[in-house]
Amino acid sequence: MISFDKVNKFYGDFQVLKDINLTINKGEVVVVIGPSGSGKSTLLRCINHLEKITDGTLNVNGLSVADKKTDINKLRRNIGMVFQHFYLYPHKTVLENIMLAPRKVLGQSEKEAKELAMYYLDKVGISDKADAFPSQLSGGQQQRVAIARGLVMKPEIMLFDEPTSALDPEMIGEVLDVMKALAKEGMTMVVVTHEMGFAKEVADRIVFMDEGQILEEAVPAEFYENPREERARMFLSRILNH
């Protein structure tokens, strides 16, 4: 469903991604971890072309992302994305936030879009806030709205870029619960996170990155019990024993 083949990315002279080879299958939940600056967010953002790869091949849903002939807007309809800082549209109500893309991109009628939006709001447990503005919601609520905004396009892939890093600790759980439910339904998910509990419980695979490279790929049990790489071992000991 997603495959990186010898992908490199540079910002000027600085190489952010080094020879990335990674395949993610349909229905898989892949958690990407690693120290900050290791290129995990960039890797994620390449998948829906928010970042351009410099060379190599990146295929998503059978389409080459870097190919000029690929209709990137069409590709993106199929990929939901959730950001660290939510990026809800502050001038629109919760309902309008969710309805925008279905209305504009899929051409749904007002009624159809509203029903669908309410369905997903209900799914993330926040339907009572439909008419509120983002600024009236807590961080956790905002992030759940952002997830609903992604889901309403019925994407085949959901990308999460540190979805809980900007949240108060007591709100992390509600967002992770929504993500866990989503994973159980068989959604293909790529998640950049530091939430080790989530990774252990939900991930099919852990990808460990450092300095732009994928150093290790393993199932969670194996990765946490017995990481092969010294760098991964160091990283784990730092984040687990604090």
Partner: peptide
């Protein structure tokens, strides 16, 4: 306007 607003809109398929 924060850059993320454009990114959020574009990543949901808007032109």
């Amino acid at each position: 306007v924060p850059r993320g607003q454009m990114e959020a809109a574009r990543s949901s398929g808007l032109t």
